[in-house]
């Protein structure tokens, strides 16, 4: 079973490699160079997919956090979430069943922070030649920065709790609160900016994108998304193996002291 899973992962890896190559070719050979901004504009094909994947990743953290708590709650606690799921027999190790959701949340959070970091790096790289400044408190950039802080806090929290079960529980709560905060952060930052309008109104993803650029962007998003899922599956596999090692250690300990 593990082997078949691996083959699926490898196929996905090949696909993302191919589409990345295609996207790169399209970015540098097919898409026209923007007249005003010049070659720098091509960062946009990396910036936008990264932003999309960061949000997708944080959404995955959100959903798997809810599912983790719901799975855990099944059988021994009254929780509103239970009602969303068919009543199940009280499981002996309900948290073992919930465990995959925690692995997914962790994996998605790590990769999400990675892509959010890419957004925060590519943004200033683009802004410097175009706006003349490295950083601006532009609404989108600021929102991404705050999200980056929230999910870095998520990883710091995990690193500071030794007990696996408690770590999963606490981070699930943060995974839920953090994502529900996204729209609030977005609106407050946007309104905050509009009171002091700066050079930030320029919208690189305007609707008047030439078709070649739009096609290239779409291809780039597709390639990055495939890459994202490839990384996610690998990260999940690593975490699952880590869990198995933990369980083997436990088993050894038990038989050793028995």
């Amino acid at each position: 079973m593990a082997e078949r899973g691996n083959r699926g992962v490898e196929v996905l890896g090949g696909l993302s490699l191919l589409s990345l190559a295609g996207a790169l070719a399209a970015i540098f050979l097919y898409a026209p160079t923007e007249r005003v901004m010049g070659i720098v504009q091509k960062i946009f094909y990396f910036h936008v997919p990264s932003a999309w994947l960061a949000y997708l990743a944080f959404f995955i953290v959100f959903v798997s956090s809810i599912l983790y708590l719901a799975e855990r709650a099944r059988g021994f606690s009254i929780s509103l979430l239970i009602r969303l799921f068919p009543p199940a027999r009280a499981s002996l190790r309900s948290w073992v069943k919930a465990r995959p959701w925690d692995r997914l949340a962790l994996s998605a959070a790590e990769i999400g922070v990675l892509f959010a970091t890419l957004v925060l790096i590519t943004g200033p790289l683009w802004a410097r030649p175009v706006w003349g400044i490295w950083w601006t408190w532009d609404a989108r950039l600021t929102t991404t920065l705050i999200l980056w802080f929230i999910y870095v806090a998520y990883l710091v929290l995990r690193a500071n709790i030794d007990d696996r079960e408690r770590r999963a529980r606490f981070s699930a709560v943060l995974g839920i609160i953090g994502f529900l905060d996204v729209p609030l952060v977005h609106f407050s930052v946007e309104w905050w900016r509009t009171t002091h309008p700066g050079p930030t109104v320029i919208n690189p993803a305007g609707p008047s994108l030439p078709p070649e650029m739009l096609q290239t962007l779409m291809l780039s998003i597709l390639a990055f998304t495939l890459l994202f899922f490839y990384m996610l599956l690998h990260r999940l596999r690593l975490e699952r193996m880590r869990d198995e090692v933990e369980e083997l250690k436990t088993a050894l300990e038990v038989s050793g002291t028995a």
Partner: peptide, 13 residues
């Protein structure tokens, strides 16, 4: 570390 990023909307508003 946990609280400040999340309460940004509250502080701004």
């Amino acid at each position: 570390i946990l609280l400040f990023p999340v309460v940004v909307p509250v502080v701004i508003a």
